[in-house]
C-alpha cells in the first residue's frame, strides 16, 4: 500500500463562519496504483490533494503514509491545476527544481532533468522560458518536474484540463507511458469522466461540497492501456454509471444557479 486517508475532513475558516470542503473521506491507494478522482467543481478535490501532500492540515482524520524504507524518495509530488512553473526559471531549471530542493548537486540534477526533457521531446526548449512555451508544453514541464523526483506518490490536479481535445489525447498517452516506466502511484483528479476511466485502475466519485466518497468503481481494463479503450463498450458503460452518480449533484448545482434570478423577477412590483 502506498498511503491511506482515514476519516479526512477539512473546513476553512471564513469571515462569517466555516466552509466545509471535505467530509469523512476514507480510501487507500496501493503501490503503483493509478486512482482517478472525479467530482463536481468545488467539491474539495484540490483540497484533498493538498491534504495528502501535506500542504494543508486536516481538520479531522489523518493521512497515513506507508511504512516505506528510507531510500531518499520523496513521499509525494503535486502537480497543480495551474502548472505553477516559475516564470524566472528556464524549462531545465523548472524540471530540476524538485531535485534542487532535495539537495541534488547542480550537474546531476541538470543531467536527470535533461534526460527527462529529451524523453518527452522537449530538448530544443530546455533553455526556453515558460512564457515561450505553448500551454500543453508548460503542462508537460510541470508534470516532468514531479516525475524526475521519483516520488512514491504523484498527485495530479486536472493536469490536462486546459488543453484542446487532440493535445489532451496525446498527453494522456504520454502520461501513461511515463507512469508505466516510473515506480510511482498516482492520484489523478479530473473533471473528465472518460479520462478518469481510461487512465485509472479505480475511479473515486465524490459528492458535491462537502466532498464525500459517493462511490468507487474498479476499471476492468488491462495494462498496458491503449487509448483505443476510449471507444470500448466497457468504458462507455462505466462512463454512464459514473455520470448517473454525478448527475443529481450536477443538476442541483445547475438549478441553483439558474433559478435564483428568476425568483427575484417574480417578486411582485408595488
Amino acid at each position: 500500500m502506498s498511503f491511506r486517508c482515514e476519516h479526512l475532513s477539512k473546513s476553512f475558516a471564513m469571515r462569517d463562519g466555516f466552509v466545509q470542503a471535505l467530509d469523512d473521506v476514507t480510501f487507500s491507494v496501493g503501490e503503483r496504483e493509478f486512482v482517478s478522482i472525479v467530482g463536481p467543481s468545488g467539491c474539495g478535490k484540490t483540497t484533498l490533494l493538498k491534504l495528502i501532500a501535506g500542504l494543508l492540515r486536516p481538520s479531522a482524520g489523518s493521512v497515513v503514509p506507508s511504512a516505506a524504507p528510507d531510500d531518499g524518495r520523496p513521499a509525494s509530488a503535486l502537480v497543480f491545476q495551474e502548472h505553477g512553473l516559475f516564470p524566472w526559471m528556464t524549462v531545465l531549471e523548472n524540471v530540476a527544481f524538485g531535485l534542487e530542493t532535495r539537495g541534488v548537486g547542480r550537474s546531476e540534477r541538470h543531467e536527470r532533468a535533461m534526460t527527462f526533457i529529451s524523453s518527452v521531446g522537449l530538448a530544443p526548449f530546455a533553455h526556453a522560458w515558460p512564457h515561450q512555451l505553448s500551454v500543453g508544453m508548460r503542462q508537460r514541464v510541470g508534470i516532468g518536474r514531479a516525475f524526475v523526483t521519483d516520488p512514491r506518490l504523484l498527485l495530479l490536479d486536472e493536469p490536462l484540463g486546459s488543453l484542446d481535445a487532440q493535445t489532451r489525447f496525446l498527453l494522456q498517452e504520454e502520461l501513461l507511458r511515463l507512469w508505466t516506466r516510473s515506480r510511482s502511484a498516482v492520484v489523478y483528479v479530473t473533471h473528465d469522466i472518460e479520462e478518469a476511466v481510461v487512465l485509472g485502475d479505480r475511479v473515486l466519485v465524490l459528492t458535491g461540497r462537502p466532498g464525500r466518497i459517493q462511490g468507487e468503481i474498479t476499471v476492468p481494463l488491462g495494462r498496458p492501456r491503449k487509448l483505443e479503450y476510449a471507444v470500448d463498450e466497457k468504458v462507455t458503460a462505466l462512463k454512464w454509471q459514473i455520470w448517473k452518480m454525478l448527475e443529481e449533484e450536477a443538476r442541483r448545482s445547475l438549478a441553483l444557479s439558474t433559478r435564483e434570478p428568476v425568483s427575484s423577477v417574480e417578486e411582485p412590483v408595488p
Binding site: 527544481f97 530542493t101 518536474r145
Partner: peptide
C-alpha cells in the same frame, strides 16, 4: 501564491 505552494510542496527550505 501558487509559486510559494509549489516551493513548499517540493520541500524548499526558507533560504531557498
Amino acid at each position: 501564491p501558487i509559486h510559494f505552494e509549489v516551493a513548499h510542496g517540493y520541500g524548499a527550505s526558507a533560504p531557498r
